[in-house]
Design a protein around this nucleic acid. Structure first.
Lengths: 204, 204, 204, 204
DNA sequence: TGGTAATCGAGACGGTACGTCCTGTCTTACT
DNA sequence: AGTAAGACAGGACGTACCGTCTCGATTACCA
């Protein structure tokens, strides 16, 4: 009767990941020390090293613990509003040390095949609902649209001195939709996007 | 008695900045240590600390040494081509440890009033030449357009697993121009952008 | 499914002791680690701890595996030669990490009731044969003589910068025999020695 | 005006050596940890490592701080009594963790050219005074005699289960003197000893 | 022959110390 | 005055063993 194997282990893992997340929130990824995580988790340093050989791996797993709410369906009924809501969430999160941490990890290592990319994948649902509702042309490339819409948002939030305010969002939404529609008219279907998500295949 | 005569003033500064730039190229901003810089510059640790209290300040100054060529006028005669050229340069640089370093600094500190924002300002010239040539509507907001065009480029280069290939650039250029034109048609002038350059105030 | 079948009982013990002996030969007692022994023996760490709670105990048992040949009867027919032979063996062994290990164990713990003392007991046979042959006075105290003869040998081998060479041995043999004879003459029997063997009591 | 250079340094050194000596007294050489020494000295770990790369080097220097009193002239007027006094001092010290430490260091490393050997050199004065007084033959080899007399003492003190008691000392003194005299008579001068002190030359 | 008990492997864990690297501050002396 | 030289306290690194523990697998012996 296999009860719970690794019961102790699971607790330890949870404690460590939580501690790591908190440390990141407090001091950012740059200020993250495994010693501090271990102590905060009430765990020995070697226990952390056993599972996460690298600060980066630990941080990534800690940051992956949640964050799924970001692209949750806003269900406003309108694509424009949906995009605005998600962009606001994104912006708010990226003003957080914790929100930025993910990007710092990616930047300091070279890894690209990552949470940021992956979670942006979650945005496709929103876009595809917009397509279904006819707010975007039928042949719109969701990956491309996502890159083009969220790219500037993230960029502004992470690296610009001034916060992208509401007005920017409004303008961006208008711009993106206009671009997508105009492009569709101008060139018709143009094959698959060339920004690929991690692994998945595109359908015709 | 000392073999090497002491470096003085400007020479010291130059040696240190150069050493720092090389260290960053080798090990990235994360792997940058003042000790290593000092040794590489043939200079004492104290001398470095005297002028740059912070690793970030040193890195920023070292990285500012060059990089102005990025937005130099491609002078292809066409806005589309100009944008493509600059985007290619940007992408190539951002695949470099040194290119990424700048963004890492900004991310790890919270400072946003920085090179990235400033240098994007340099892109305005290109865009405004496009406006002058009639390739973009007369009321196009250069700041906004810059953010909307380069945002996705930077985003892809820094954080995406897949390199933004030519096809992406082509699509992006098309998209951006289409968006700008459509927006102009649809709504006319709509007030100033809300993405501000470094310090200057925008007028209504 | 496991490739190697488990070792059991006596086999485990043998494997561990052998592994321990080899480790000591390689790295000395100071460099002896139970982990390394376990791995070398192809045995789990716990299995070692189960039987030898202490590094010292393990080492002692491992070192006790052999070493009985040291005081084996040289049977040269002459006490002087017998002593020389045994002293040479001793010296040679004490130049070995393994040979020294035993003394290190004794020194690091405070335990004195140990192999060194015990094995010196084996030397008595040689001495007593010498007494029987008339090479030493009849009332010679074998324990005392052993201490007085082998003491300097061990001392030189373990702690002196210069190896005790043949000439030293020759001189020592002469000296010891001369001392024993002179002492006998000078004072006659003088009661029991006060260096006791491990446990046994000396009789008057 | 060179005041005291290295004033701070000298204090630190003294503090560390004292702390090390105390640690050794408390826990023996085996239990000596650089961390503990550093803390006890109120000094940073790296400061210790800077000067003593090895535990052994630190221990040796710490143990060399004193210990010169051991072979100080007992000045009893009689060689026999002098030897007894020094032997008693030696024995007493070798029952100490600190006293044993020196020998442990030598044993664990292979270094032989050492304090123990060197300080035994100090014993020569005593022996040579005995020669001068006519208590030993004129051609007695002080090195050899020293080895032959103190060897058993050290041996018993370090490795025997039973303490070498007074009676042993008495017997040993008698034995050694008898041996030296008998040897002189039997063989006359026989050239230099073959146990050499560290470096010095023997005089004819 | 099948079941139970002893033995063992596997490996997580808290803990101590290792020896190294870098930080940022300080003192001293040189030039 | 600016610099080299370098000692220093401090903190974290990543590693090695320690000795303890739990969990299953294996083996051996006994019923």
């Amino acid at each position: 009767m296999s009860a719970e194997p690794q019961l102790r282990g699971a607790k330890v893992v949870a404690a460590i990941l939580e501690a790591a997340a908190e440390e990141i929130s407090d001091k950012g990824y740059g200020g993250l020390s495994i010693e501090a995580v271990a102590e905060r988790a009430g765990v020995n340093k070697t226990t952390v090293y056993r599972r996460w050989p690298t600060k980066a791996e630990l941080a990534l797993e800690a940051l992956a613990q949640e964050g799924d709410s970001l692209f949750a369906d806003p269900a406003t009924g309108s694509l424009e509003e949906d995009l605005r809501v998600v962009a606001r969430r994104l912006t708010r999160r990226l003003r957080t040390r914790r929100g930025r941490a993910l990007y710092t990890v990616v930047l300091e290592n070279d890894a690209g095949d990552f949470k940021p990319a992956r979670s942006r994948g979650d945005a496709h649902a929103i876009i595809e609902r917009g397509i279904a509702r006819g707010e975007l042309p039928a042949d719109t490339d969701a990956y491309f649209f996502s890159a083009v819409f969220f790219g500037p948002v993230i960029q502004q939030a992470l690296f610009a001195s001034t916060v992208p305010v509401e007005a920017f969002l409004t303008k961006l939404v208008t711009f993106a939709l206009a671009g997508a529609r105009a492009m569709a008219k101008a060139q018709g279907a143009r094959g698959a996007s060339h920004i690929d998500g991690p692994t998945q295949k595109r359908k015709p």
